[in-house]
Amino acid sequence: MKKILIIEDEKNIIYSIKVFLKKLGYEVLIAKNGIEGIQLCEEHRPDLILLDILIPKMNGFLVCETIKNNHELMNIPVIFMSAKVQKDDMNKAYKIGGDDFLIKPFNHEDLKMMIKKYIKEA
């Protein structure tokens, strides 16, 4: 079973994504802040990370940078989810190794397409 890590502090988002992803047949890991997210990532080696930018303790960019600088973790696709969609933010996200960008608000279809893009089913 493929594992997806959600790093997000908004519980309703977490919940709706979790329900959807479980339905699609993924194992879902949840971190409510950046530090926890990195810990979970190191522990479980997820197949995909959904990363919010504005999260407590360590923001999304830093989390992404940390993961991408880790040789063991750098191949995990990181998809940013944010309402912050200014060009600078997008550029920064790609520059530090982010793989893609989901602009809030998105719906389940957008999310599904994005996941399918990075997780090839066996």
Partner: peptide, 19 residues
């Protein structure tokens, strides 16, 4: 901006239910 996050969960939730 503040609208976006709740909107995301709403549309996710509705989408799921309809789906």
């Amino acid at each position: 901006h503040e609208f976006r996050t709740p909107l995301t969960s709403i549309s996710m939730a509705v989408g799921l239910l309809l789906n």
